[in-house]
């Protein structure tokens, strides 16, 4: 029986059968990246931009991703203001022939905290320019609502700082965002293990974005597969109705007196 049938994730004009989005950073090689992404079943990958190094040509990671039919989501990483992010999004639109953009603006290099004010401003401009905007933000329910109102096609609140592997440190606020949001909620950043991903899905997130935890694993392909299973397990569990948390023991077996009187 397939409990995941008829449960697609729709963002903008695109339907995904996998709810696991993946980043392409930090892999040791392009081959290990592809093996990991294939094993994960992911259908969307993030990419970033940089100035071309005219001295040293870099490996082309695009071809294998395109050959595998991946949807490409360029990010605006490196942008420190709304103005820079809008510029980066327009560059990315030309570079990758897509109007999708992961909007991320983090002026602070130590914790990479997303700037909410610049992000909202950039989101509004980019939506008007025809972008499908996927903003990376703090797990701030008010901000997520405002981003939805200006036309973002999803919100991407963080679980914990980027690359920290600290899991769902923001869980209380993710719960509120998931309850209130009318656009898909993709938990991004901080997911350090398949258990974290499963929990996010179980809480009702529409998807997760994972990069570091897969890329730095000793076996990236196997870890990609583990994340696939975790995301699916979490999604099915969400739909299956979890039992209530109780303050005391509730017997699973009937407590009868069938042993009374022996001995």
């Amino acid at each position: 029986m397939n409990f995941l049938e008829n449960d697609p994730l729709i963002i903008g004009d695109h339907t995904f059968s996998s709810r696991l989005f993946t980043g392409t950073g930090k892999y040791a090689t392009s081959d290990s990246m592809m093996d990991s992404i294939k094993a994960s079943g992911s259908e969307l990958v993030t990419l970033s931009l940089r100035r071309v190094d005219l001295e040293n040509h870099s490996d082309n990671i695009l071809s294998p991703l395109q050959q595998h039919g991946m949807k490409l989501l360029p990010n605006t990483s490196g942008a420190r203001s709304a103005k820079e992010a809008v510029f980066a999004a327009n560059l990315a639109r030309e570079a990758l022939a897509t109007n999708w953009v992961k909007l991320e603006i983090h002026p602070d290099p130590r914790y990479l905290m997303p700037d909410p004010i610049e992000t909202l401003e950039a989101a509004e401009i980019l939506v008007k320019q025809g972008f499908i905007v996927m903003p990376y933000v703090h797990a701030d329910p008010v901000l997520c609502k405002r981003l939805e109102e200006v036309g973002c096609q999803c919100v991407m609140p963080l679980g914990a700082p980027i690359g920290s592997n600290k899991g769902l440190a923001s869980r209380t606020f993710l719960d509120i965002i998931i309850e209130q949001s009318r656009v898909p909620v993709i938990v991004d950043a901080g997911i350090g293990s398949p258990a974290d991903a499963a929990l996010a899905m179980q809480l009702g997130a529409d998807g997760v974005l994972v990069n570091t935890a897969m890329a730095v694993a000793r076996k990236p392909a196997a870890m990609g597969y583990a994340f696939r299973l975790a995301v699916e397990a979490g999604r099915v569990a969400y739909h299956s109705g979890l039992g209530e948390v109780e303050g005391q023991a509730m017997a699973s077996s009937p407590m009868t007196d069938f042993l009374v009187g022996l001995s």
Partner: peptide, 24 residues
């Protein structure tokens, strides 16, 4: 991209070229 072959460069122009790379 559609304008690259038609856009002429002038003395003093500031040209920036960007490429897609791996990222999260």
């Amino acid at each position: 991209k559609s304008q690259w072959s038609k856009t002429l460069l002038r003395q003093g122009d500031n040209v920036l070229i960007f490429e897609s790379i791996a990222g999260g």
